[in-house]
Amino acid sequence: MDQTEAAQPVTDESILRRIERLQLDYISSIDDGPLDNWPQFFTEKCLYTVVSRDNHSRGMELGVMRFESVGMLIDRATATQHAAVFAPRIIRHVLGPMIVDETGEGYRSRCNVVIYQTSPDGDTMLLMAAQYNDIIVELDGVLKFKEKRVVYDTHRIPDSIVYPL
């Protein structure tokens, strides 16, 4: 992602707390559900991509998921719940500390994330190590993701990715 020259570190504690809460509510919509809440964290026109670091570092945009509107996110949530066949599993996101800058586009938030997956038999494995690169804007007093780029290091994915990340 371009580092906008005008980026300034955000030091306002209340904004930092709100952005942290947004991220925690976001992962909770996936980990704890209901998944129908997941699209509401995005602006109507948005970019949600999940791209391997391998592709990203070579300038390739291809992602395992790529959605450009809330509608596409709703379709993913619907399909995952009603039109997909997979073994049940529990997903658990763990976020690292966030680095937040203010830019002309909005707040730019970056943080590390590891995602664990637990099988029906009770085995927990690391699904991926990744980084969130987000652009967050405030609309009518509510913070939303205008962009969420999940760049994952674990580019040999164990089996499949069922839920959003």
Binding site: L62, R66, A83, V85, F86, S160
Partner: peptide
């Protein structure tokens, strides 16, 4: 490409 790959609408089912 949303249809294909490890999270693909179609091929997720196959891997499972």
């Amino acid at each position: 490409a949303n249809l294909m790959g490890s999270a693909g609408y179609v091929t997720l089912d196959d891997a499972e």
